[in-house]
Amino acid sequence: MGAKEEAQAETKMDMTPMIDVTFQLIIFFMCNIKFKMLEGKLQTYLPKDVGVNTTPQDKVLEKVDVRIIRKVTKKELDLDNIDRYREWSSAGGTTMDQVQILLQGAPVKDLKSLQAQLNEIRRKIPAPTDPKEEDSIKMNLEPMAGVLYEDVVQVVDIALGAKFTSLTFRGIELDA
């Protein structure tokens, strides 16, 4: 009888490590659920008046054309290693050895220079004080074939930083 009691006592399981592990798992999942949601977005709008020009004739609009060109051909481009196509300068900007930007048709030296030139345009024609008011400067972005999403986001980022809020994309090459 005494031996039977002893055997029962030995079969008792220590639950502490399992509870520890399960709580660790809960904490992991709780933390993980929040991490991936910290993303950002760039708000853009497609024109509402496709095919119809509703802009008042008396309103003089300044147009800023920005063309983005990637000098590396598609065959040469290794999409898994795009950083090797760009050199990061000490100032934090990208040197334009693989990406070329034309502002009003003229090549821009680097992203800092683009920023300075856009700020200069903005200084001459200030942004509307009311955010609902239409910006009198329209920026046309024309990403050419081979341009990457990151190249465009960098330019959009600089444009938004210079308070250009009216951005449109041009040059959709659906079969390219």
Partner: peptide, 14 residues
């Protein structure tokens, strides 16, 4: 993705 060709994004816009 940062290395996605922008034309694919433009197709969605279109």
């Amino acid at each position: 993705d940062r290395a996605t060709e922008f034309k694919h994004v433009q197709k969605v816009m279109y």
